[in-house]
Amino acid sequence: MTTNQHQNILLAGASGVLGRHIDRALTDAGHKVTGLGRSEGNGVQADLMDRDALLRAVDGRHFDTVVHAATALRKPPMGHRDMYATDALRTEGTAHLIEAALATGARRFVTESMVFGYGYGDFGDRTITEDDEFGPRGADPQLERHLAGMRAKEQLTFGTPGLEGVALRFGLFYGPGGTEALLPMLRKRQLPAPADRGRVLPWVELTDAARAVAAAVEHGRPGQAYNVADRTPMGFRAHLLCVAEEFGLPKPLSVPLWLTRPMAYAHTMFSSSMRVSVEKAERELGWTPAYPSTREGLAALRAATTR
């Protein structure tokens, strides 16, 4: 399906790191964007977790499409508890936003999903496609809590009558507004690099991710999910080394993986390995990453910050 006409779009999470890039990408594509969030700078000021206040805030408003890019994360999650607010936002928050979308007459709902919805662990050399199971049961109660949130978010997106739901399963974000937070820690050698032993994960530069959202708004097929990542999966250690090298910072300390176990959620991610195919997004959305690898994306970021 293609909906190229300019749309009136409600963007939940517009003031977040990814949200700011999505706002720019949608605006550049000719759409009118209204931000939704708790801060005063949003056109619709409301908390997704407060259903009644959210419905009051959108009362009398009309939107063609709603984009769900809201997050409760303000810094990288280290422990499982750091994910609890995001887990709730994926379940109750998404249900409330979908109710608000229907109230505004929106026909399309594009949601931010992520590749960890395929599960945490080592998938080896197998390339995961959108046909693989999404939201398998977690190996323990903590992982199941996170996976249940991702599972519910997509089920709500695809299972609501009257809404054309599209999900984008993003790799790990880096780039403008995200990577800069790592630089002071790397400069002080406060950010160790865990040994990854060949493990890799999908990454995507933030402006590339935002362009994928704009493409999904216009070209995404209802009921479909799309993997969105660059073409060069990379381990956490390799990524940190790349950041340090590009910005002329000290090489991060190398630590054994077991030493990160007290940071239970981060340790789970460090222990995971995954490759995903983005062929479906390239074919159906007409999207390709401007930065096929993090090295190219980081070089562009450094060039932009040293102008």
Results as ranks from 00 to 15, higher is better:
152 A>G: 13
153 K>T: 08
154 E>Q: 11
155 Q>I: 06
157 T>I: 03
157 T>R: 00
159 G>I: 02
159 G>K: 08
160 T>G: 02
161 P>H: 07
161 P>C: 11
161 P>S: 14
162 G>P: 14
162 G>L: 03
164 E>M: 06
164 E>K: 10
166 V>A: 03
167 A>S: 13
167 A>Q: 09
172 L>Y: 10
174 Y>K: 03
176 P>T: 06
177 G>V: 11
177 G>I: 10
178 G>N: 14
178 G>Y: 14
178 G>Q: 15
179 T>V: 08
180 E>N: 05
181 A>W: 10
182 L>N: 07
183 L>I: 15
184 P>L: 13
187 R>K: 15
190 Q>N: 15
190 Q>A: 10
191 L>F: 07
192 P>R: 14
193 A>N: 08
193 A>F: 09
194 P>I: 13
195 A>V: 12
198 G>I: 15
198 G>L: 12
200 V>F: 05
201 L>R: 00
202 P>S: 14
202 P>T: 13
202 P>K: 00
205 E>G: 03
206 L>A: 12
208 D>F: 06
208 D>M: 02
209 A>F: 09
210 A>Y: 02
210 A>D: 04
211 R>M: 12
212 A>C: 11
212 A>F: 06
213 V>H: 01
214 A>L: 07
214 A>R: 00
216 A>H: 06
217 V>Q: 05
217 V>C: 10
222 P>F: 12
223 G>F: 01
223 G>D: 05
223 G>T: 04
224 Q>T: 14
224 Q>N: 14
226 Y>W: 05
226 Y>M: 05
228 V>I: 14
230 D>Y: 05
231 R>I: 05
232 T>R: 10
232 T>L: 01
236 F>D: 03
237 R>W: 04
239 H>E: 15
239 H>F: 09
241 L>Y: 05
241 L>A: 11
241 L>T: 12
242 C>P: 04
242 C>Q: 13
242 C>W: 11
245 E>F: 08
245 E>L: 10
247 F>N: 09
250 P>I: 08
251 K>E: 11
251 K>C: 08
252 P>L: 12
252 P>I: 04
